[in-house]
Amino acid sequence: MMMKSAYAANIAAARHFLFVPGNRPERFDKAAASGADVVVIDLEDAVPAPAKAQARDDVRRWLEAGGSAMVRINAIDAPWFAEDLALAHIATLQGLMVPKAEAGDAIIDVARLSPVVALVETARGVTGIDALAAVPGIVRLAFGTIDFTLDCDLTASDRQLDPVRLAMTIASTAAGIAAPIDGVTVRFDDPLPVEMAARAARSMGFRAKLCIHPAQLSPVAAAMTASEEELERASRIVAADRAASGSAVSLDGEMIDRPIVARAYRLLAEGADGRP
């Protein structure tokens, strides 16, 4: 139980989640040494159907030998789900990432076994998002943008999906769970697109991103970390608030509203690395 609590705390604080294919066991140790806040071994999209049983066995052996990671299992209605779920009993499993997560008894049962990141990637997942976020044991929501656009038959740009991101942030805040995780950016040979996407997600209340390559970790961390300018201004606002001793706060000729003061305290409490 104590290990599960520690794993859940790490998942809640993580800025990047790095996928590694479940059928590439030679990459597990490399991913674990990559510097990713959380490594996610993928048994779903990365593994073709004929290879799923072997991949699950490889994951089990690696975990039982002392490896530690989160595992993205197959969807609750998939034929491989029950056997994937048995991995939850291995002590070094950090948590389960559940694809196509939707509110209901099934996700409640999963979340009783392990810390869960719930992937929101269907219309039903979005319409039931408040109930989903409130399930005990769900640590964070993550946005599966590619599957969501497929489910809804959308050709929308990534930024046109921001209403869903806002709904995820509101649901997470209302449920008292950690800020949501943004979906993948498919470009990994150029740091700029992934950093720009992560910064845009951060502006929508997200505090982490799913990654498909170790090269994406650094730009994601940079985007999810407060800049020196942000921290310097927050320090000045906090100093002005303390000097005001409960009176109205002003700085550089401007009145500073209480929500801005509260945000400055929160930013400094999170620290320069962006982790609470």
Rank of each mutant, 00 (worst) to 15 (best):
residue 216 Q to E: 14
residue 217 L to G: 11
residue 218 S to F: 03
residue 218 S to Q: 15
residue 219 P to S: 11
residue 219 P to N: 13
residue 220 V to M: 13
residue 220 V to L: 11
residue 220 V to W: 10
residue 221 A to M: 10
residue 221 A to C: 13
residue 221 A to G: 12
residue 222 A to Y: 02
residue 223 A to M: 08
residue 223 A to N: 12
residue 223 A to C: 13
residue 223 A to T: 08
residue 224 M to A: 02
residue 224 M to E: 05
residue 225 T to K: 04
residue 226 A to G: 03
residue 226 A to C: 01
residue 227 S to W: 01
residue 227 S to T: 15
residue 228 E to A: 15
residue 228 E to L: 12
residue 229 E to L: 14
residue 229 E to A: 15
residue 229 E to D: 15
residue 229 E to R: 13
residue 230 E to H: 02
residue 231 L to I: 12
residue 231 L to A: 04
residue 231 L to R: 14
residue 231 L to T: 06
residue 231 L to K: 01
residue 231 L to H: 03
residue 231 L to S: 04
residue 231 L to C: 02
residue 232 E to R: 14
residue 232 E to D: 15
residue 233 R to Q: 11
residue 233 R to K: 09
residue 233 R to S: 02
residue 233 R to T: 06
residue 234 A to N: 07
residue 235 S to Q: 13
residue 235 S to R: 15
residue 235 S to M: 06
residue 236 R to E: 14
residue 236 R to K: 13
residue 238 V to P: 06
residue 238 V to F: 03
residue 238 V to K: 07
residue 238 V to L: 07
residue 239 A to N: 05
residue 239 A to H: 08
residue 239 A to V: 01
residue 240 A to K: 06
residue 241 D to A: 14
residue 241 D to S: 15
residue 242 R to H: 09
residue 242 R to K: 10
residue 243 A to V: 04
residue 243 A to N: 12
residue 244 A to Y: 05
residue 244 A to I: 08
residue 245 S to I: 07
residue 245 S to H: 15
residue 245 S to C: 09
residue 245 S to N: 14
residue 246 G to T: 10
residue 246 G to I: 09
residue 246 G to H: 09
residue 246 G to F: 11
residue 246 G to C: 10
residue 247 S to L: 13
residue 248 A to S: 09
residue 248 A to V: 15
residue 249 V to W: 08
residue 249 V to R: 05
residue 249 V to M: 04
residue 250 S to G: 14
residue 250 S to Q: 13
residue 251 L to E: 10
residue 252 D to W: 04
residue 252 D to E: 12
residue 252 D to N: 10
residue 253 G to F: 05
residue 255 M to C: 02
residue 255 M to V: 12
residue 255 M to R: 06
residue 256 I to T: 09
residue 256 I to P: 06
residue 258 R to L: 13
residue 258 R to C: 00
residue 258 R to T: 08
residue 258 R to S: 09
residue 259 P to S: 03
residue 259 P to I: 04
residue 259 P to W: 04
residue 259 P to E: 06
residue 259 P to V: 06
residue 260 I to D: 06
residue 260 I to Y: 04
residue 260 I to Q: 10
residue 262 A to H: 02
residue 263 R to K: 13
residue 264 A to M: 06
residue 264 A to C: 08
residue 265 Y to V: 05
residue 266 R to S: 06
residue 266 R to T: 08
residue 267 L to Q: 07
residue 267 L to I: 01
residue 268 L to R: 01
residue 269 A to W: 01
residue 270 E to H: 07
residue 270 E to D: 10
residue 270 E to A: 10
residue 272 A to L: 01
residue 272 A to V: 12
residue 272 A to C: 00
residue 273 D to A: 05
residue 273 D to M: 03
residue 273 D to V: 04
residue 273 D to I: 05
residue 274 G to W: 01
